[in-house]
Write a protein that binds this DNA or RNA. Structure first.
Lengths: 254, 254
DNA sequence: CGGGGTATTGACTTTGCTCAAGAAGCGTGG
DNA sequence: CCACGCTTCTTGAGCAAAGTCAATACCCCG
């Protein structure tokens, strides 16, 4: 099934978050996904638009991008396969930022009406969707700390750690190696730096033997040292806790 | 009722987000809130703790604070009366940051079990709670853009605009005036700056006639100019959209 | 082979940080 | 009521991190 291909990464992601009962899985599989492929830098959801559907990344990377008046950009999140990129647009009136492809990116969209129906039918799925939002927010908070209090080299190291950890958790990377289809300009917009400084910072980390970053392939050479530099703790990415629907058991389990 | 006092700000906040049916309001009123008062700088929820309750700000301000290894702090969010500060701890295993009082701060806590029960009973409340998380995340994204791409004066202006707008929406400020019980050190930790630079930046905005900032009282003198400097658009704060439970109507209404 | 975006590097500028010292504000106890 | 001590605020001076500008090299692709 075409549709099945599209849901698979999402199902995997939701399985990580908590139990996914068979009937809920079936409901998700029954959604009418519309898959589209975007080229590098193409806009997936425009700023100011009023989406009538939400989309899941099926393959590749997507970024949320904010534009400043002088044309400067700031990326506020990176999404990998399985991420429900603009689930929140279900609650939003209008997009306050744009979502764009960070490399070639395959995306599956579901109409809001279907999602609304889905969560009306299954509170458990609503719970899991809510949790996805909570997780995004936790990642966002980590970005805030990094932007505010880490030096360029630490921040870049943090980003690399975060992406590897997330890709690894989703089964999309191992061996401390992954490819990131982002230009140094894109990286600058993630880190709140200039592209020139990003270039120098990458060079620095490579020279220190922490990384190997050829083309758009990243190999983490000294994971421990890199995490230490970044003050990275993957904890905030694993916010696995109670299952809804069985509050008693979950409570006691602690 | 003591309990009623504590819920009121939350009810107000939820009313802003969407309709709050009488039975849901009753459910909220029935929660067993435990109110506590914290002094300036006191810890409300400790980093690394595993909360068994979530808390709502009833009066005053609370901040989410992250600590770096060298002792530096970064604030990732400010919460005002009516905000459900650590609603997400319902989903979280362990706090990856601390919540502390930003001035004298009154807080009401509800056991997770009751909240869990509440959302199990009322999917509509779960929807509203989810929405609160979405709103927090939207504010977080704005902080990311500001940290990454605004200069110190713009960023400070942005913070002032955001806080005024939120307080005003909650009926806690008008006349472009509010009090913010934060030291310049606190402000530095919100803005990712040093306190010395914050001091100079405040002076700058006052000298330009945009603000009057005496003690901890802020008066916005030229709102338009301030917003322009900050590139502030309040849109992201008003993510009022569809009501759940009546998806059809909401759809058509657009 | 040429063109456009990307990467790299150098030279110089700017923003914001650090260190340091003094002033002001405030609560507490004598 | 004042003196003390603590924190916060304020200001100056010098420094460091990151930005800007600009030139060159690279690389992919048509």
């Amino acid at each position: 099934m075409d549709s099945n291909d599209a849901v698979q990464p999402l199902l995997t992601a939701l399985h990580i978050e908590g139990t996914l009962p068979t009937e809920d899985e079936a409901r998700l599989r029954a959604l009418s996904f519309r898959t589209r492929t975007f080229g590098e830098g193409e806009t997936i959801v425009a700023e100011g638009s009023q989406p009538t559907e939400s989309c899941v990344v099926v393959d590749g990377f997507a970024a949320r991008v904010h534009f400043m008046e002088d044309g400067a950009r700031q990326v506020s999140a990176i999404h990998i396969a399985g991420d429900f990129v603009d689930l929140h647009s279900l609650h939003l009136e209008e997009m306050d930022h744009e979502v764009s492809a960070l490399g070639p990116c395959k995306v599956a969209s579901v109409p809001h009406e279907e999602l609304q129906h889905l969560v009306d039918e299954s509170p458990h799925l609503m719970w899991l969707f809510w949790r996805l939002t909570v997780k995004d927010a936790a990642i966002g908070r980590a970005w805030i700390s990094a932007l505010g209090r880490l030096a360029a080299d630490q921040h870049l190291a943090h980003l690399v750690c975060e992406l590897y950890e997330r890709l690894n958790a989703a089964g999309l990377a191992d061996d401390h190696r992954f490819s990131l289809p982002a230009t140094q300009i894109d990286l600058a917009d993630m880190l709140g730096l200039s592209s020139v400084h990003v270039n120098r910072t990458i060079k620095l980390l490579c020279e220190r033997g922490l990384l190997d970053w050829q083309q758009r392939e990243i190999q983490i050479l000294r994971p421990t040292a890199l995490k230490e530099l970044a003050q990275f703790s993957g904890e905030y990415l694993r916010l696995s806790m109670s299952e809804q629907r069985s509050p008693r058991r979950a409570r006691v389990a602690r």
